[in-house]
Design a protein around this nucleic acid. Sequence first.
DNA 1: ACCTTAGGAATGAACGTTCATTCCGTTTTG
DNA 2: CAAAACGGAATGAACGTTCATTCCTAAGGT
Lengths: 191, 191
Amino acid sequence: MNKTDKRDEILRAARELIAEHGFHGAPMALIADRAGVGAGTIYRYFENKDVLIGELHRNLEERLYPDILTGYLPEQTIRERFLHLGTALLHYFITNPLDYRFLQQFYNSPYGVDHRRDKILGIKEGSDVFCTLFSEGTSQQVMKDLPMVVLFGLYFGPLLAVARDHILGFIQLDEELITRTVAACWEGIQK
Amino acid sequence: MNKTDKRDEILRAARELIAEHGFHGAPMALIADRAGVGAGTIYRYFENKDVLIGELHRNLEERLYPDILTGYLPEQTIRERFLHLGTALLHYFITNPLDYRFLQQFYNSPYGVDHRRDKILGIKEGSDVFCTLFSEGTSQQVMKDLPMVVLFGLYFGPLLAVARDHILGFIQLDEELITRTVAACWEGIQK
DNA sequence: ACCTTAGGAATGAACGTTCATTCCGTTTTG
DNA sequence: CAAAACGGAATGAACGTTCATTCCTAAGGT
């Protein structure tokens, strides 16, 4: 096993354990076991657990964004792009439940709040797809004139909730239900 | 300090610490300190930490439900009742941010998932205000014909998200913004 | 009225466990 | 063979919980 492999194994093991049992069901010793390395080896690749977790988050975004952006066409209407991102997001979480669970854990820990604070304060940079789409939507009057944060809530709130309930087995999301759910979100947000 | 006072002090201290720092920032020793009792004393009132946390949840519901149900009139239209509950819920969380934070922590822990599972499987009992309102809404065709779980997501998802962002200081919810947010939820859910 | 005493309530030091991190002997690599 | 990488036992801090002890109150005896 070469250096990159080992690093990847550690990340994979950590992601799995955190997704399955939460941050506190993922001690370093277990991560090491599952990655097939010694406990000390982890510290050759990551300064400490916080850094490892931060890296997991970066790593996830690197897989999530390309995925939901394939087929995303800036020339489509705002509504079409809204529906695309929403369904793509749901699909991603359904096919990568571990990633969903990790994100859930992440945003409910001190790490996540800081991260979100930075992101929201940095909205003006507008580099984020969702920010761009939503500010376009409000300025073109096709979305309600509500603060960006509220629009985000109306969008991600329901999506994350149904994704959670699908993953927990409380509901079975199929193609039609996904479409109808995202459409309902749109109806809440559209002017 | 008499017996009931002491029990209440322990509950208050636990609620505060969990709300402020999460479940894992609230060790029994700290709870005892803040309650002004010895560490062992807690175990005279609560069998263990799990029981204490469960009791906190029960206690919260006993304060939350009466609050949001004052002024709730079954003879009002479904839409009116929907708006009433939504705004009442947001008001409650804004004026009781510690309760919001506790609930957030609770539902993101194993305790919470089990609790929700029981609740969802027990929907048929229909004792819950929200369940009753929503099944009335779908059967009378004024709400979209979506599974109860999805409707819940479209309702609570945004509400909890904006409550969180208000409490974190990312946004300032005033009367008007609350009304408009709940109205937007309704537009997503109505047929 | 005062002292004694019994028993439940309260205490906090101590215990066993778990965790992140470090340390050092061993193995692999160049 | 020197240097880097590795493994996993060792370490110490933090946790929930326990329990031998102390404290408080109020009943009972004088």
